[in-house]
Design a protein around this nucleic acid. Structure first.
Lengths: 244, 244
DNA sequence: CGATATTATGACGGAGCGTCAAAAAATGTC
DNA sequence: GACATTTTTTGACGCTCCGTCATAATATCG
């Protein structure tokens, strides 16, 4: 049992090593340069060994995606624990998501890659199941806050049946906005302001539409943004300012 | 001059032929099976000739994307001309977008492919410029309606500076939602209802948030949906029902 | 230590992109 | 119409990269 465990730990460790190498290669060289050969070379194992860990290149990228969702789950969890109104806590999720995307643009990139079904068809069943579970978990956190908002009266009881719709609305808005921002579409030339600011404004308006108290017009949303950011994502903010 | 023109017409014609073939291949065989060789075979020209038209495979797919935006411009234009309130007309754009995506899921697929910067880096400058122009045109239609809403008082004047934010909000929400719906993510298993319905509800709530009159709670939005669909997208609806 | 099971390796087959020298077709000139 | 010149087409070829698998190396066990 002890040997097996050690073995498995080694395998686990190597898997992390490979994924780290892949992440770094992606970051420095781009997706086009990310080849199984290069990854193997970097970690000083042969290609065959890499294939003992991952069924295909897509499977590997999907694993990167899973790690990324795990990071996001942590972010969401922190937002969930924020000591504020339900609306603040829900907003905090969005803020965390935005910050994470800004800080790790490459993570967003493979999340995007993984969402493409051309890729998905080459990912192993197991990995897809694993990903689904993580997605369940992360959307669950958001849904819990909406439920709490209804329970405490911040959100009208009539929306009880709309919880998943509300979560989906924010998810799609964030996912769409950050992806459009990520892409090389020259939004600025099309007359658009910075994506994260628009996203924040739009999310507030959207939640106002659901009459989720307190309304954004009754409070200073910019203040919220800085307060939440400072309280929950101090490190992320610092890192972000470092980078620019 | 006349010869040149004939020549150019021939070239144009062949370009259409190639794109049609690519579209069909994509539809029937999927992106993985879409190869330059197969396209060449289908249109009975050699690979080299295809490369006289398109700088790379990505360039070709981007051209498909441009055609798709052109179709959408037509849809948007119809929505613009709808004889109703500004909010109805703006909603009509979203409906058209949703219907188009449902009817041409493969179009959405290469729109998604094209938005990825890994792809973009291999597309020729010219084609990207062309695409940008089309994007300018299509967002312009949406912005015009928002402007009209402000001018006629349906939307508060204080949002004058927010026009592009409002357009971006709807764009990102639709883009994100339809893409999430497109992907093989098992939304249903995650507890979500059909995407298009959620999108419609969310868009209404979002526009309510901006207090764009008339409010959705004052009117029968489901009625709107069917009325607009019937008036503008009769063919699309019919085709969609045929398909299922 | 030798037998057996497990794991690692990298040469290889195959697919597909993009190129380019040569062939074919079109155009121009007399 | 015959020949020269330009343009277009072709497909064989080089190259990259994925994924496999027989073989080699290593580990485990009696």
């Amino acid at each position: 049992m002890s040997t097996l465990s050690r073995k498995q730990r080694e395998i686990q460790q190597r898997e992390t090593l490979i994924l780290d190498a892949a992440r770094d290669l992606l970051k420095t060289q781009g997706y086009r340069q990310l080849t199984m050969e290069r990854i193997a070379e970097t970690v000083e194992y042969s290609k065959g060994t890499i294939y003992n860990h991952f069924a295909s290149k897509e499977d590997l990228v999907c694993s990167l995606g899973c790690r990324c969702i795990n990071n996001l789950i942590d972010v969401f969890q922190r937002a969930y624990d924020y000591p504020g109104s339900t609306r603040e806590r829900y907003s905090a999720i969005g803020i965390g998501y935005s910050l994470y995307s800004q800080l790790n643009p490459f993570d967003s990139q493979y999340m995007q890659i993984v969402k493409n079904n051309t890729i998905r068809e080459k990912v192993s069943r197991d990995k897809l199941a694993q990903m689904e579970q993580l997605e369940q978990k992360i959307t669950g956190i958001a849904q819990d806050i909406v439920q709490e908002a209804i329970d405490c009266g911040d959100l009208d009881r009539k929306y009880q049946e709309k919880i998943s719709t509300i979560v989906f609305g924010c998810w799609s808005m964030h996912f769409g906005a950050l992806q459009l921002g990520q892409s090389d579409i020259p939004l600025h030339e099309l007359g658009f302001s910075p994506v994260v600011k628009m996203l924040w404004d739009n999310t507030n308006v959207y939640l106002d539409g659901y009459q989720w108290r307190p309304f954004s017009r009754e409070i200073d949303t910019d203040r919220w943004l800085t307060d939440i950011s400072r309280a929950l994502f101090r490190n992320e903010i610092a890192e972000l300012q470092c980078a620019t």
